[in-house]
Every structure is written in structure tokens, then in C-alpha cells.
Nucleic acid binder design. Structure first.
Length: 937
RNA sequence: GCAGGAGUGGCGGAGCGGUCAAACGCGGCAGACUCAAGAUCUGCUCCCCUAGAGGGUUCGUCGGUUCGAAUCCGGCCUCCUGCACCA
């Protein structure tokens, strides 16, 4: 990507500039060397990066840097996404002089004099792209920038790559043309997605059965929309809005229908031929009779102000017995028109719950529903009856040949029968009222000749499942979510009529839609640097050539050397070893990513691992501009610096819970990092101490191993707990204990600088330089695993820590001043007794006691031994771990006399409990292995 | 509504069948250092008993399995994510 030049942006730390200048993160094919290829979902370039981007990105950058320390050849590229409507929309709104859009840009940090330029979508793309690149560089992103690009025709070679992708998918039969219902705005002439809606988010197209009730005499059809065709056997009357507008129309050149006014256009948009014959006065229909097609019964048309003429056909069939709305409405109507009293509910479904009752009447009685005004209750009652009847209901004999069938099984069959008998038709309607942002009520349109990705294809799905089974997920708990998404995924429209992007190569009126051109661009990264280096021309990137590069196609005759290099590069870098994103992309982008990879690349190219993270909350709340807790990454970097931002983000969550980022944490972490760095610059040297030195080395070894384990699974919080908090705490303890081996401590810092460099690379480099190391911490090798020189080293140190803590507790509890402390280490027979109890774990107390008494030294202790055994048996926790033996314990404590004295500020004497020189309170008797007795005097 | 995930201290969160009052971090309290503040260091920090190292109660909620449950199973409540032509 060419430099975008002079757009003022984010301050780049000198260290980051140096890494870039030295090309530390440029990765090229190194045959034989293990590689690691990871990708971040390229951001959509229409606004600043925020903490959410920062979190997902940092987790990946940490992984990149960790794998680099592991000696792998790591490729971490970064691209930009511009496909779709929003960018074009910003430019268009600005051109139209929309003041809101202008304000949004100003709020986003755009200078007033720059606004004019935002009328050009290309400028918008370049503007944000430059800021993104600088932000990513400033946060310490270890990116190979040579491979950057932006989607859409702005990068003609990328567009060519997308053309190849779709040509290939089509050849493979995965792109098909279809006809599909969508929620649609006739005013905007486009599908209305959730985000384009004023009301009706979540609503989707739903197919109604239109039952054709014929007017007596004239013979026009009053089609009634219903989702419960089975209840037609119990229809009692029709409802029509006597105040509404209705039309007489001819449908498909045949029947004449009377429908609500909007129905005409709906049907037209659902591939029906509609001829409007003129208006109809609904009042004229009131009281007339219609014939129920399913059973020939006559029933009246009644007036109903609650009927929405714009919903379905605008004419509604009433089922007194099973629809609470209809039941209550009729009760109301009867008050005004007693003649209708002869209308009786007809029960046609039997359930255990409503046996022997008229269900609608029954539920209204139970719920105390008295009028149509009780809308909330009616809604609940309706869905309750529906569920009960659908799941447990059977049709009664009145339904003729369907008698006895469960509702859940016969519903679809019955609808199909009605349609084929000519009794019914179908119409699509939104599952709830949808109003477009342009304030127009949406309808369902059946789009013809739309291009789809055939995600419903079972054979394709089976291979994606195979791919998932072979993949690693971090954390693994998201795996079921992928499996599930594969199961329900249906065909996906992959092209739109407007916006930025790449036209479908065979049907240029369509542009490949934004989620559909961002699924295999990882493969493009493997060749992007060759394209820009050699200035490869679009016309040379033919389908044949790309087949050769990516799909083992034969080498085209005229292929140049760069083509071979591309192929080698692709084969070397693929598959993607790790892709990470927020959890919202699991059910769409990440799953599509798997489908496309499975379709286009051989098994060796299938993704290896995915990591998913939660949403960043700020100060305990979801980040939002209106709450005032929206934090841009740039602002955070300027306030706290890259290391503190990275550390605080990455330390806020391990798995895919939503991390909570707080400024106070960032501040406190910043202080800790500074203190850590300054510790490395002033290392005292006081010589060796064999015990303490080997304890410190062993502790470090443990932290290194824990950190490696955590890093490799992207458990960044745990990694920091080991590599930072744990390690720093141990060093502090070492120094407090009197350890001061300068050489060892330097080595300690050097190791920490290395293992912390994935998260705090800037501090790591600073320490690296401070210690006089050559090169970069970012290029160091992960430390060798070490194991402790002897197994009791940790228990021994824990003994000291515990003894100190106990002594302090006791001294606090005594409540009176003391001048000397005596520490009595447990006698040998108690250690022996402990091991006897341990060896006999699980046996009855009598047996354990008997076993202990067979040991002479224990028997000699007599009366003291038995209560002790009972106590140990009661609290099995105490007998689990193995510690130092009696002699070691005494030695360890004795050697810590000086330390304990310093800490307590009083003279401390360590003695053997079985031979105390001074024990007026007989405290030595309570000494236990691992828990010496303490006496303060 | 459907699918998946989650509910542990003042807070963020470890733990995922027995050393759990619960790692680590934040916040709070006390002490050291400082003229002071900040930073740093050292303790304490669920509740109830007991106060010389102790005991008990708790892990959304109600049940169940088990010698033993925060951990496994079922019901309920609450929250998060997605549900498609939209990035």
C-alpha cells in the first residue's frame, strides 16, 4: 500500500518506529522454518478505532509476539475494509448537505476544514486507513505492512481476486441464483435490514395462508390471511375494517378479490399479476354472507375497527373457539348487534388442558380478560393457546379426514391441501409491523434472480463440520456455537445493488456484498507484497493463474516468475494458524470464513484455530457514545501509553467473557510497569545464597512454564498473572529474605523482559537496553524450561512464609508487648506419625491408630499421639502435601532466624520442640510438621 | 420466540467433584517511608461465633445425584451474543 501521506494522526513511539525501520515484523517464506500466520478481521474504515478493536487486536498481537519468541516465522498482516453502504452513505449525506453527518464527523475528531474532502468516499477510506495504521503502529502492533490493502475496486488486484473467488464458487455450484422473500421498502427500493428500521427490529418474512371466502351472489373472494389454517373448520365470521380503504382487484387475470388497499402492491411485489378494478366500500359488505370453502358453511362479514387493512390481506377470519381476540371482539360486537347472537363457537381442537371447554372463552375467564382493551393479556392468552394446541392438540371429527391428527403434524399438509383444492392462496407478510427509517411501512418483496451462496448445501455443511472438528478454539467453549451455526445456516444473498465493492464478474449490476468479500482475503495477504513489489497487472491475474496459485491448477503457459513465487508463498503460509475476533462474528463472518475456505482450498488450507473474545465494557458499562464512556484507542494510547493499554486490556479477561476496562486499572498498571522497569536499572549485588538463589530460579522456571501454557491458549490474563504479578512478587520476596545475587537478578529481569515482551513490548525493550543486551527483546528466544534442583525447595520456603505469618498473627492476638519469640519445630515422631496417617488414608480410625502404635517412637509419645491422629483424620486436608522432614524443617527454620528477627523486629530463637531450652508455657507441644509452635515472651 | 453462553466477595473475576473463605487484580482500612502529597513497601479486608494458631455459614434460585457439589443433572429467575442480505 502506498503511503497516504500527510494526514495528521497518532504519535508513534520511537521504539515502534525503530522496529518498523529495522523491518522486524516483515515475514517472508523461509523454507523449513516453522511458520505461524495469524489475522485480525480488517476493520471497516469509517471511524476511529476504539477499545474493542484494541482488545481483539492486542490479544492477537500478543500471540504473534509469543510465537515469534518461540522461534516461529510469524506473519501478521493488516488490511482495511471499505465494502458496502456506510462509507458511500457518509459521502452522499454530506453532499446532500446533511448537518447531522457533518456534526458526527466533527465529533469524531475530523477538522472543520477537512469536512469538504469527506464528500469523496475515496478520501474517507484513505483518511481512516492512515489513522488506523498509525494507531496500530502506536499500540506496538507487530505488523508486516507491506501486505496492506483496502477492499473494493480501490485495489484493482484485490477486486480481481474477488472475481476469481466468485467465478470459482459459481463453477463449483456454490453460488446460485434464487428467488427469495425479503423485508422491503418500496420508497427506498431496497431491502430493509434491521439497522434500517424505525420499528420492527428482528421481524422477518412469514408466509400466511390466504383462505378464500366467497361472497354470496357476486362471487368475489374475500381472502383471509391466517397462520392457523387448521382452524378454518371452526370459522364463525369474517372481520373487515368498516372505516378502512379496500380495493377490488383481479389477481393473475382470474379471480376478483376484495382486499385492503396496500395488499395490491404487496401481491405485485410477490410475483403476482394484479389489476386494480376500483375501490370498495367496506360498509356495504357488513352483514353479507360468505361461504367457507373448507366446509361450505355460510357466515356473516362483521365490522371490526381493530382490523389493520395493511396487514396481510386486510380481511380477517374469526375463530371464536380458539382465538381470544375473536372471542372478545364478538362479545363486544354482540352488545351493539344482538342479531349476531346466533354465532356459536365451534371447537375443533382437543387438548388435555382445555378439555370440555371452549378454549378461548376458558382462557379469557381464567385471565380475567373482559374487553379488547386488555391487549397485553390477550396477546399472552393467544400465544398460550397457540402453543398448547400446536404441541399437544389433536383435531376433532369436525375436521373430516384430518380428525385425530396432531396439530403440529397436519398444519403444513392441510395448508398445501387447501391451496391445491383452490380454497386458499398464500401471501408473505412481515412477522411484525416494520417501518423503514424513511418512515415508510415495509412489505415483503420476493426478489428475483438474486445471487446466493448455497450455505444450505448439506454436503458443503458436512465438510465444514469436518473442518471444525479438526480445529482448535480458544476458548473451546465457543465450539458448540460454530457447530450450531452450521446447522441452521441457510442460503445467504451475496450481492447487492449499491455501495462500494467489487461487481459480480458475470452480472455487473450486482456488487459482492460486504460479508461475502471478506472471507478469504487472508490468502490475498500471502501474495499482496509480491503484487505491489512487482507491480503485477490486473489483466495478468487471470482465473487460470489464480487457480494455479491457490487451487493446484496447472501452470498457465505464459506465467511469470512472480506467479511461482505467489504459489510458493501461499503454500508456505497457509493455513491461517489463528484468527481472532469478537464474539459477535461467530454466527456470521467466522462461520462464512470456514465455509469459503472449505469450498475453495484443499484440506491443508483449512483454518487451524480461532479465538473469540467478548465485548469491552468501560467502567463497568457497555461502551457507548451516549453514556459518555466511549474511549478511542488513540485517546487511551495518548493517556496511558501502549504498554499500559495493552496490559490493562489483556489482563481484563481470559476467556470470552466481556472484559471490563477501567481507567483506574490502566493507571495502576502503568505505575506498576514503571516501577518494574526502574527495578531493572538498580540491581544491587550482595553475593550468593545457595538456598534463596535456587528458590528464585525455580520460581522463575515455574512462572515461565505457566506463562507459556497460558500464552499458547491466548489466556492472556493468566499469562500476566504468572509472568508479571507472580514473578514480581517472588523477586520482592527474594529480596526481602535477603537475597541479593546481582547476576541472578539481572538474569531474572532479562527473562522477564523476554516473556513479558508480548504484552509490554516497549518496557521489555527498555529493560533489554538497560541490561546491555544486544538486539531486541522482541527477537529474543523463549527461555528454556527449568525445573527446581530439589523437590523440597518450595515447601521449605512456604514454611518460612507461613511461620512468619503465624508469628505476626499471634503477636497481634497476644495484645501485649513482647521482647523475644521462640519457634519450636515439630519433633521427628510427629513427622513419622503424619506419614503413617497418610499411608493409611481412608482406613478406619482404629486401624490407623494401631498402625501408628506399631512404630516405637510414636508409641513412646503415648498419650499425645492418639488425639493427634484423631485430629488429622478429622481434617484430611492437612495430611496431603509432603513437606521437608523433621531435620530439614529445623534447619530451614534455623537458617531463617535472622530473617524472622528482622521482620518481627524482635529476637527470634528457633528450637527443637522435643528439646527446648526455654519453654515456660509448654508451647512446644503444639508444634506440628509444617506448622511450628510459637511462643512470645 | 429460536440457538449458544453466563450468574462466585464492595467491584473485575479464578476455581469446574474432595487441601475452598475462595487465586490474581481493583477498591477500602491500618502501618512503614515522606515536611507533606503521590508513588512504593508491609499487613488486614464475606458474615457469625471464638478471641493465643480454632470452628461454622455461604458461590442467582428451588430440587436431585453423591460418602462429599460453586463444580454433575433437572425446573425457575436474570443477563449477554446472534437470528441474515447488515458491517
Amino acid at each position: 500500500m502506498e503511503d497516504t501521506g500527510s494526514i495528521p494522526t497518532v504519535r508513534i513511539p520511537a521504539q515502534a518506529a525503530e522496529w518498523e525501520k529495522k523491518g522486524l515484523f516483515r515475514a517472508d517464506v523461509l523454507p523449513g522454518r516453522r511458520k505461524f500466520f495469524l489475522t485480525f478481521p480488517f476493520p471497516y474504515v469509517n471511524g476511529a478505532m476504539h477499545m474493542g478493536h484494541g482488545f481483539t487486536f492486542t490479544r492477537l498481537d500478543v500471540a504473534a509476539r509469543y510465537h515469534r519468541l518461540r522461534g516461529e516465522n510469524v506473519l501478521f498482516p493488516f488490511g482495511f475494509h471499505a465494502t458496502g453502504e456506510p462509507i458511500a452513505g457518509v459521502a452522499a449525506r454530506l453532499k446532500a448537505g446533511d448537518p447531522k453527518q457533518r456534526q458526527i464527523l466533527l465529533d469524531g475528531g475530523v477538522l472543520a476544514e477537512e469536512i469538504e474532502s469527506f464528500k469523496d468516499p475515496v478520501f474517507i477510506v484513505n483518511y481512516w486507513r492512515a489513522i488506523f495504521k498509525d494507531t496500530v503502529t502506536a499500540i506496538g502492533g507487530s505488523i508486516d505492512w507491506r501486505r496492506s490493502f483496502v477492499t473494493t475496486t480501490l485495489t484493482p488486484t484485490f477486486s480481481r481476486f474477488i472475481e476469481w473467488q466468485y467465478n470459482t464458487l459459481r463453477k463449483l455450484g456454490y453460488v446460485v441464483q434464487g428467488t427469495h422473500p425479503v423485508v422491503y421498502c418500496l420508497n427506498d427500493q431496497s431491502p430493509t435490514g434491521d439497522h434500517d428500521r424505525l420499528y420492527g427490529e428482528g421481524a422477518s418474512p412469514e408466509e400466511y395462508v390466504l383462505v378464500k371466502f366467497r361472497l354470496e351472489g357476486a362471487g368475489e373472494v374475500l381472502p383471509c390471511g391466517t397462520l392457523r389454517p387448521e382452524t378454518m373448520f371452526g370459522a364463525t365470521n369474517l372481520w373487515i375494517n368498516n372505516e378502512g380503504k379496500y380495493l377490488r382487484i383481479r389477481v393473475d387475470g382470474k379471480e376478483e378479490w376484495i382486499v385492503g388497499e396496500p395488499t395490491a402492491r404487496k401481491l405485485e411485489n410477490q410475483l403476482r399479476k394484479v389489476e386494480v378494478l376500483g375501490p370498495v366500500d367496506p360498509k356495504a359488505l357488513i352483514g353479507k354472507n360468505v361461504t367457507n370453502p373448507v366446509n361450505g358453511r355460510a357466515m356473516p362479514v362483521l365490522p371490526a375497527p381493530f382490523v389493520d387493512p395493511a396487514h396481510a390481506s386486510g380481511v380477517v377470519v374469526s375463530v371464536q373457539a380458539h382465538a381470544p381476540y375473536d372471542y372478545i371482539a364478538l362479545q363486544d360486537y354482540l352488545k351493539a348487534a344482538p342479531f349476531a347472537g346466533k354465532i356459536k363457537p365451534i371447537v375443533l381442537i382437543e387438548t388435555a388442558e382445555f378439555k370440555g371447554t371452549v378454549p378461548a372463552e376458558e382462557i379469557c375467564r381464567r385471565e380475567g380478560i373482559a374487553s379488547q382493551a386488555d391487549e397485553a393479556k390477550l396477546e399472552k392468552a393467544t400465544s398460550s393457546i397457540y402453543k398448547t394446541e400446536f404441541h399437544t392438540g389433536r383435531l376433532l371429527p369436525i375436521t373430516g379426514k384430518y380428525a385425530g391428527m396432531p396439530v403440529s403434524e397436519c398444519k403444513d399438509r392441510l395448508a398445501a391441501d387447501f391451496v391445491s383444492a383452490g380454497w386458499a392462496d398464500r401471501i408473505w407478510e412481515c412477522s411484525e409491523k416494520v417501518v423503514c427509517r424513511c418512515n415508510n411501512r415495509c412489505i415483503v418483496k420476493i426478489l428475483e434472480n438474486q445471487w446466493f451462496l448455497k450455505f444450505s448445501d448439506e454436503e458443503w455443511k458436512a465438510r465444514v463440520r469436518e473442518c471444525v472438528a479438526g480445529m482448535a478454539f480458544y476458548p473451546d467453549t465457543i465450539r458448540p456455537q460454530f457447530e450450531n451455526t452450521i446447522n441452521w445456516l441457510k442460503d445467504k444473498a451475496c450481492a447487492r445493488r449499491s455501495g462500494l465493492g467489487t461487481p459480480l464478474p458475470w452480472d455487473k449490476g450486482w456488487i459482492v456484498e460486504t460479508l461475502s468479500d471478506s472471507v478469504i482475503y487472508m490468502a490475498y495477504y500471502t501474495i499482496a507484497h509480491i503484487i505491489s513489489r512487482d507491480g503485477v497487472r490486473v489483466e495478468d491475474m487471470t482465473d487460470d493463474l489464480l487457480d494455479y496459485v491457490f487451487r493446484d491448477g496447472g501452470r498457465p503457459p505464459g506465467a511469470k516468475g512472480w506467479a511461482d513465487e505467489m504459489r510458493e508463498s501461499f503454500l508456505y503460509w497457509y493455513p491461517v494458524d489463528l484468527r481472532g475476533s469478537g464474539k459477535d462474528l461467530v454466527q456470521n463472518h467466522l462461520t462464512y470464513y470456514l465455509f469459503h475456505h472449505v469450498a475453495l482450498f484443499g484440506k491443508k488450507g483449512w483454518p487451524a484455530a480461532i479465538t473469540v473474545n467478548g465485548y469491552v465494557n468501560v467502567e463497568g458499562e457497555k461502551m457507548s457514545k451516549s453514556k459518555g464512556n466511549f474511549v478511542t484507542l488513540r485517546e487511551a494510547l495518548e493517556t496511558y501509553g501502549a504498554d499500559a493499554v495493552r496490559f490493562s486490556l489483556v489482563h481484563a479477561s481470559d476467556g470470552f467473557e466481556d472484559p471490563d476496562w477501567r481507567r483506574s486499572d490502566a493507571e495502576s498498571i502503568l505505575a506498576k510497569i514503571r516501577s518494574f522497569v526502574s527495578g531493572a536499572s538498580q540491581i544491587p549485588d550482595g553475593g550468593q545464597d545457595p538456598h534463596l538463589d535456587s528458590w528464585l530460579s525455580a520460581s522463575l522456571g515455574r512462572h515461565v512454564a505457566d506463562a507459556a501454557e497460558a500464552y499458547s491458549q491466548i489466556r492472556t490474563r493468566s499469562a500476566m498473572q504468572a509472568a508479571f504479578f507472580g514473578a514480581v512478587e517472588d523477586l520482592r520476596w527474594y529480596q526481602r529474605r535477603g537475597g541479593s545475587n546481582g547476576e541472578l537478578v539481572r538474569e531474572y529481569y532479562r527473562t522477564l523482559a523476554t516473556i513479558l515482551s508480548p504484552v509490554i513490548p516497549f518496557a521489555a525493550e527498555e529493560i533489554w537496553k538497560e541490561l546491555g543486551e544486544k538486539g531486541f527483546a522482541s527477537q529474543a528466544a523463549w527461555p528454556e524450561a527449568t525445573s527446581p534442583s530439589n523437590s523440597s525447595i518450595f515447601p521449605a520456603e512456604e514454611l518460612i512464609e507461613r511461620t512468619l505469618s503465624d508469628a505476626k498473627t499471634v503477636s497481634g492476638l497476644v495484645g501485649k508487648p513482647f521482647s523475644r519469640a521462640y519457634v519450636y519445630s515439630a519433633p521427628e515422631w510427629k513427622h513419622t506419625l503424619l506419614s503413617v496417617v497418610r499411608d493409611n488414608a481412608g482406613k478406619p480410625a482404629q486401624e490407623v491408630i494401631a498402625a501408628a502404635m506399631r512404630v516405637p517412637r510414636i508409641k513412646a509419645a503415648g498419650g499425645e499421639a492418639v488425639p493427634l491422629i484423631q485430629k488429622l483424620l478429622k481434617n484430611p486436608a492437612g495430611i496431603r502435601s509432603e513437606g521437608p522432614n523433621a531435620e530439614e524443617e529445623y534447619r530451614v527454620l534455623k537458617s531463617a532466624e535472622g530473617f524472622l528477627s528482622r521482620e518481627l523486629g524482635k529476637e527470634v530463637a528457633v528450637e527443637r520442640a522435643d528439646a527446648p531450652s526455654h519453654d515456660p508455657a509448654k508451647k512446644s507441644r503444639v508444634a506440628l510438621p509444617g506448622k511450628p509452635a510459637i511462643f512470645l515472651e
